[in-house]
């Protein structure tokens, strides 16, 4: 780790003021800290959001479940509010990493980092969530912008994720045996006549939707409806753990299992 300045502001406003000259936000640190320890990242300053209490709230707000950006994976997974409002969602953070990671990592950190193998982006995209930042509200479809990239500005901070209620939601993850990140994770949400299918872990450009599956599931929200819908292997990642063809197969299998699990 190289030397850096450390800030722990009390408000989002103060945090935003500190975001300059290569400063980085610390929102759990499950990616940033290891990267800094390996000297692969060398921010001039780290702005720790851990002291801003308002960012940890989880509440039902009218027709939406609003989860503060600094809610940890363990808090979301164990939240009674989440369980009653959007029960399928609790399983997403519940499948991330290990207890250490789940008690440190946060939903805002995960979404902002947009790791192509992270679990949350698939859920956020499938549920059509809104990313609430210190400056604006961004629809999930417009938020993710390729590997480790989002539309967030330099001095923009995610404050909460807002999930509209009234969806049946399921997530099926095939974990990389080594890292336990998603080798393929498929999130499926049905809201009225609309079905959204989002895939993480597989796309060489990050999380993506599968229109062919969405159309088939809109007609019949059953695993059988997508048995014959083959995921396209082009545009999928190939690495030492899984090639594109195997990932394409897993998308089909995990999509069926996500539909089965949807509640």
């Amino acid at each position: 780790m190289y030397a850096f300045d450390y800030h722990r502001p009390a408000t989002v406003h103060d945090a935003q003021g500190l975001l300059k000259d290569g400063a980085k936000l610390l929102a759990g640190g499950q990616t940033l800290i290891p990267t800094m320890k390996q000297r692969l990242a060398s921010p001039s300053a780290v702005v720790d959001l851990g002291a801003i209490g308002e960012l940890r709230k989880i509440e039902q707000n009218g027709n939406a479940l609003v989860i503060g950006a600094m809610a940890t994976h363990a808090e979301v997974a164990g939240s009674k509010t989440v369980m009653s409002a959007l029960p399928g969602l609790a399983g997403v953070p519940g499948a991330i990493g290990d207890p250490h990671v789940r008690n440190s990592g946060t939903i805002g950190g995960s979404v902002a980092n947009n790791d192509p193998a992270a679990d949350y982006p698939a859920a956020v995209l499938a549920l059509g969530a809104t990313v609430i930042t210190s400056k604006r509200q961004i629809a999930a479809d417009n938020f993710f912008d390729g590997l480790f990239t989002t539309v967030l500005g330099e001095d923009e901070i995610i404050t909460a994720l807002s999930f509209p209620l009234g969806a049946k939601f399921g997530y099926a993850k095939f974990a990389n045996p080594a890292s336990r990140y998603a080798l393929v994770g498929v999130a499926v949400a049905q809201r009225g006549s609309e079905v959204r299918v989002a895939v993480t872990g597989a796309g060489s450009n990050g999380v993506f939707r599968v229109p062919a599956m969405e159309a088939a599931l809109a007609k019949s929200f059953t695993p059988a409806a997508i048995t014959s819908v083959k995921a396209d292997a082009s545009g999928l990642m190939s690495d030492i753990h899984a090639d594109a063809a195997y990932r394409a197969n897993l998308i089909g299998v995990m999509a069926k299992r996500a539909v089965e699990a949807a509640a």
């Binding site: 045996p177 080594a178 890292s179 990140y181 030492i240 753990h241």
Partner: peptide
């Protein structure tokens, strides 16, 4: 796993599965 250039691709627990 080494690649053709002799780089160890499995040099952490992200890639070497215990």
């Amino acid at each position: 796993v080494y690649d053709a250039n002799g780089q160890l691709l499995t040099a952490s627990y992200m890639d070497y599965c215990m």
